[in-house]
Amino acid sequence: MISPHPWLEHLRRHLDVARLGRDPEGVHQMRVALRRLGAWLHLGGWRVLADDIGWLRRNAGAVRDFDVLLERHPKEPLGPWLSRRRERARGALLAAIDAPRAAGLLEALSLAPPLDPDRARTALEGLAHRVETRGKRALESAHKPKEIERWHALRRALRQLRYGMEWLELPTKPLRELQDELGELGDLAVLQRQLREYPEQRHVAEIAAQLEHATERALGNARAGWRERHDAVLAAVPRTRPWTST
């Protein structure tokens, strides 16, 4: 039986670090723990608590996105503007961390019964199927904005499958490699979203042009990465029944 407690403790520790705000790793690790606990709930077939995890994770994600962007763009014109937006996101995160809903989530997770590995293995197959479907859709996309969105959807599904497999202590090397290849596209999309909201577009025209090139390159890497690795990714998932590739 698989207990959520190791990652629950990880979450508790990093909620405190995130609250203090001195080390960006606090928010990052808080988000990682929430994602892993979300995968644990999914493997157990739980519907409740998933929205609570998503709510807290989105609050952490907003701050984490700014932390990553500020590492790459600390100077004018973007840096100070991003910092102000980060402060607003941090205010919302602190309110969420201290909300009764967050305390209730921790209490409920601490009371939830451990996960049955057989049930988890069956759930893994559903996650693997989702990865394959999303990969296929991304590759078939004809329009760029839609394609980017579909690679993100694949990355999310892949991450959930990987975390699910790690709960079962299964090897995940091909999944991690593909996840890394898709990661760049994710970071670029976060920057693109922020740039769209920047008030003086002419000040960021150069960054926008660089971003366009980088996105093209990242899309090429995503397509190549999926073509090269999808067999290995799907083969890593244990099957309780024969797998038919679509």
Partner: peptide, 14 residues
């Protein structure tokens, strides 16, 4: 009850 929920579920310590 989750099958009857069309929106969100929320843990509520109160």
């Amino acid at each position: 009850l989750a099958g009857l929920v069309r929106g969100e579920t929320r843990v509520t310590p109160a």
